[in-house]
Amino acid sequence: MKLIIGNKNYSSWSLRGWLAAKQSGLHFEEIVVPLFGENWEADKQSGQIRPSSGKVPLLWDGDAVVWDSLAILDYLADKVGRDRFWPKDEAARGMARSMVAEMHSSFQALRGECPMNVRKRFDGFEPSEACTADILRILGLWAEARSRFGSGGPFLFGTFGAADVFFAPVVSRFISYQIPVPGFAVAYMQALWEHEWMQAWIAASEDEEWVIEQYETVG
């Protein structure tokens, strides 16, 4: 399998696809395509990422091609078994699926005001009312997941799974923009940030030479 991703420092959707591939336990080749680089327009029309109209991540598995991070996670879950990604308990699984779907489709204010930048720490960020509402909604979801289903470990549903894959870029954003969070969220964020896969992603992002100026300032 080949997983095509964007810059690790900036591409939140690529992080989700990459973590899903790591969680599957399957071997895959990683190919990084610099976003908005000198060859970006040509890259978008290349054979490898053309099926997604130039969007990353993109997974090739033989003749099969899958794009969109949620589709990639579902495809991999079908290959290795859904219990690797989702809680076994029915109520927990229902909530985890709902949280992943909401993360996939919502929180536009947070996305717009806080682009992912793993390397950066921004001082003085003040979220808008809409962004604050997104932050509070996410913290509420985290609190419910941890209190109801998190007894088996430090992650949202105890053990690392699909919900953590999808909220990993949010953890990065909260850290980069220094969003104040309650103690339970600090503990969760620390556990996710210190996960070996996240540490590998962070180290790789720090080694990247590409800089996208529009994501280097607040506002």
Rank of each mutant, 00 (worst) to 15 (best):
P34N: 14
S151Y: 07
H104V: 06
R119L: 00
I138D: 04
F85Q: 00
S128Q: 04
Y188T: 01
L26R: 15
Q214S: 14
A200E: 15
S176K: 04
W67M: 07
I5M: 12
E29N: 12
G124C: 02
R148Y: 08
G112C: 06
L58I: 09
G94Q: 08
S53I: 07
L70G: 07
G17F: 05
V181A: 08
I4A: 15
A91Q: 12
A96H: 03
F36V: 09
I202S: 05
V218H: 01
F184I: 05
F85R: 00
S147W: 09
Y188A: 03
G152I: 03
L19S: 06
K22S: 10
D207N: 12
R137N: 11
G17P: 02
W197S: 10
A92Y: 02
L141T: 05
Q178V: 07
L156C: 07
Q45L: 14
M1S: 11
V100G: 05
T217I: 04
W13V: 06
V118G: 00
E126Y: 09
N39H: 13
N7S: 04
A101I: 05
S69Y: 04
F166Y: 04
W13F: 11
F122I: 00
V32T: 15
G219T: 10
I49V: 13
P169C: 10
Q199S: 11
L192F: 14
Q214R: 15
A187Q: 14
F149Q: 00
A42M: 12
D61T: 06
E144W: 09
D134N: 11
S69R: 05
D134W: 02
A20H: 07
G17C: 06
A130Y: 02
S69M: 08
I4M: 11
A20T: 04
D134A: 08
S14Q: 04
V171H: 12
W142H: 05
D61L: 10
F166A: 08
S128M: 06
V56G: 08
A185C: 10
S12V: 03
W13P: 10
D89H: 08
W60D: 08
Y177H: 04
W40A: 13
M189G: 15
G37C: 13
G153F: 12
A204Y: 01
F28L: 09
D123S: 12
F28W: 09
L156R: 01
D74G: 05
I135W: 03
T132K: 13
Y177N: 00
R50M: 14
E30Y: 05
Y188S: 01
F166Q: 06
Y188N: 00
V56L: 15
M103C: 13
W86K: 03
K44W: 10
L139V: 05
S98C: 10
R97P: 01
A191C: 09
G124F: 01
Q190S: 13
I72P: 05
A109L: 07
L58K: 11
A191D: 03
